[in-house]
Amino acid sequence: MKKFRRILVPVLVLLFLYVPILMLALYSFTDSTQIGAIRSFTFKNYETLFTTDELRSMIVGTLLLALGSAVLATLLGTLGAVGAFYSKKRTSSIMSTVNQIPVINADVVTGFSLCILLVVVFGIPKDTYIPLVIGHVTLCAPFVYLSVIPKLKQMDPALYEAALDLGAKPRTALMKVVIPQILSGMVTGFMLAITLSLDDYFIATYTKPATFDTISTYVVNATKGSQTDIKTALWALSTLIFVLVIVLVLVMNLNSKKREQKEAKA
């Protein structure tokens, strides 16, 4: 009985988490406009997804925004972490505290306050995309900072000194010694930044140009609308993202397995 419960509970939770996504995936291959109605098989939703300009530009825009903000956030966050790590204790603790603000803060508050500052006070038009990009970098950079700091702490401080003693200029020592040591933290931060930007709704809502939509803002508006072909095309998008995420998770898992095995051998 106890053993049974140990299996039943996790399985029920998995069903709760996955049945909705899988049902949506199943029905994305039919011409049904609601789940539960039995209809015939078709790729129509996928066709709509790839041929409707509005949908295509929304997807491309979301990806470009995520990529751009993640690159900027990784640069800024890494520089900040390195700078803070080698600064006086006071400076670095102030930096770390301020860095926590966007992490802990509700995204609604972050987005709204940035909108007031940039759009209302500074008068930067949202059409320039500047508020949106700043918003997403503000959302992501603190997480890059938090991913890089532990790597700096793990690093052997003698490495940098050794490079200097061996005649390297500080800049070279930084590029050739420090950066390789913290690279894994930077990659983690970059990936986090991408996912945060892709998932964001609130900051985009408060800072984006009226004519631009991310996947989140588009989906939320579409559920209020009555265009059923767009609605079911989004089911197809959901299915594609689901498959992509599963593949990525598998690849990452296999990679870390391989690394573990290599380390075990060495």
């Binding site: 949506l24 892709l198 089911w235």
Partner: peptide, 13 residues
């Protein structure tokens, strides 16, 4: 890692 608005759409259906 799946966009939350798409997941909520699935739950809603």
């Amino acid at each position: 890692w799946i966009n939350f608005s798409l997941r909520i759409t699935a739950l809603k259906e």
